[in-house]
Simulated assay, not measured.
Amino acid sequence: MTRAWILPIVLLLCGAAATTGPALRGDTGPAVAYAVVFLVPAGVCSPLVFPRSIGAEEARRRSAADGRPVVYWRPGCTYCLRLRLRLGRRARRLHWVNIWRDPAGAAAVRAANAGNETVPTVVVTNRPHTNPDPRWVRELV
């Protein structure tokens, strides 16, 4: 199991534990409320919210060919989630690199951020932008 799935799985287990008591007593209202309270954050924190990630080398190659930005991200990052949600459908047009799955991507982020793995880092025409305004990224796409 990778680090990306730890938080969603913990949330699902906590939700199951919190839902079990009311469900066994027949209290469907609280059981449903607990399920929603834990399932929504689990879904939002999971890697499934983001477009399919590719490797850093492939992302650079594709970006050079089509001019689209490369977004370096990691699961569980609230700023990455904010960027992803504010981009909406346009997010699929970008090249996404999960730095927890791609060591070359993590190295690129560290090189752009003085040794820190600060995400999201958006690279446009070989120029990195750390945690840019989602409106600015939306204008690029």
Rank of each mutant, 00 (worst) to 15 (best):
R62S: 10
S63H: 00
A64E: 13
A64N: 12
A64S: 11
A65Y: 15
A65D: 15
G67H: 13
P69K: 01
P69H: 01
V71Y: 00
V71N: 01
Y72I: 12
W73H: 12
W73F: 14
P75S: 14
C77V: 04
T78P: 08
C80Y: 03
L81R: 12
R82N: 12
R82Y: 14
L83R: 03
R84C: 12
R86H: 09
R86Q: 10
L87T: 06
G88R: 08
R89N: 06
R92P: 01
R92F: 14
R92E: 10
R93C: 10
L94N: 00
H95R: 01
H95A: 00
W96P: 05
V97D: 00
W100D: 10
W100R: 10
D102N: 08
P103A: 14
G105C: 09
G105S: 12
A106E: 14
A107N: 08
V109T: 04
R110L: 03
R110N: 08
R110I: 02
R110C: 01
A111I: 12
N113T: 10
N113I: 08
A114H: 15
N116A: 06
N116Q: 15
N116H: 15
T118I: 06
V119C: 03
V122P: 00
V122C: 00
V122W: 07
T125V: 10
N126Y: 06
R127Q: 10
P128F: 03
P128D: 00
N131F: 02
P132R: 09
P132T: 01
R135A: 09
